[in-house]
Nucleic acid binder design. Structure first.
Ligand code: SF4
Ligand code: SF4
Lengths: 157, 157
DNA sequence: ATAACCTGGATACTAGATATCCAGATTAGA
DNA sequence: TCTAATCTGGATATCTAGTATCCAGGTTAT
């Protein structure tokens, strides 16, 4: 699990707090949490390609949310940043060595891979069930003046 | 997800097929699927430390299952091989930069981390719900003579 | 026209996973 | 008792994927 996921999630919540009128540049989003600007920019580009945020060049440009937080699930962000690969990669070892005859060659996905696939599906379902708005609400409960702090800081630039 | 997990899972099923009387050396288990002997040995050591298999040195030594396959869940094996670390590691970025004041410093685990934790819990639960005996049964359905092949090959050594 | 900004490719750096090696310790069997 | 097979565990090397930086474009507000 790359830490780009965490950056992307926090950035989305920050964009929501900044409001829909104001576009925020990658440089500012990065500075807010002291992250490497160029690298965070890559994650934001991935979010843009996935249609989660929109991007605009030029002065007063930057990123803003493409849709309300309630319509963005954690799964959307994870898929956008981490790519579509499964965590468990089948290397087909059962077909190597003396054990792997042609008998097993044409069989379907083996039992191990299926079991791991079911577990990963449960993980995805749970991520898909939680929206970024849920996250935002709880974050505001823990730090009620975080949104105002961010807006003030953005305004002072 | 390291591929040692896959090796360990297949090795456990192979040990079950070999039977409880015969201990199988790491070298033979590795040769069966053409895996690097020394490295597979490390995964088997991890399984031994976790109490999933027992090990015995000396001639006629090797590994055997510590308990029936039905009492070993996929989660047991994954935890033994991959360690206890969570896939999502919280880097506490919210406390870095201008955004992280002392206000948030003492707050509990943030909303993002909690949400990811819930998803990972669902994954673990699904893994814990599936026993290695389920896997064995389906594997035998796909390749009914795999157990006999393995026993024959082991006997011819 | 200028400066602020995104895009995307090329490149370097780094940490972790993969793989090998060796010097003990243990035990079955001759 | 001696030998050979085997596990144990630390040290080390290699490889891969994640992390990070840079630059040469292209776009747009002022
Ligand atoms: S399908 Fe089964 S044997 Fe093949 S790589 Fe996946 S887990 Fe291993
Ligand atoms: S607790 Fe929240 S802010 Fe801190 S590292 Fe985890 S996800 Fe990021």
């Amino acid at each position: 699990m790359g830490e780009g996921v965490e950056w992307a999630l926090h950035s989305c919540v920050n964009l929501a707090w900044a409001g829909p009128d104001r576009a925020v540049s990658a440089a500012r989003l990065a500075a807010w949490h002291d992250l490497p600007t160029a690298y965070l920019n890559k994650q934001l580009q991935a979010l843009a390609r996935a249609g989660i945020v929109t991007s605009a060049p030029g002065p007063r440009g930057g990123f803003r949310l493409a849709r309300p937080l309630a319509d963005i699930s954690l799964m959307d962000v994870v898929a956008a940043v981490e790519g579509p690969e499964e965590a468990f990669r089948c290397a087909e070892i059962r077909q190597q060595g003396p054990g792997g005859g042609p008998a097993a060659s044409y069989a379907a996905e083996c039992a191990v891979a299926q079991a791991m696939g079911r577990a990963e599906l449960a993980w995805r379902r749970e991520l898909a069930a939680q929206s970024l708005d849920d996250v935002r609400q709880q974050a505001e409960r823990q730090a009620p003046d975080a949104p105002r702090q961010l807006r003030d800081w953005l305004a002072s630039r």
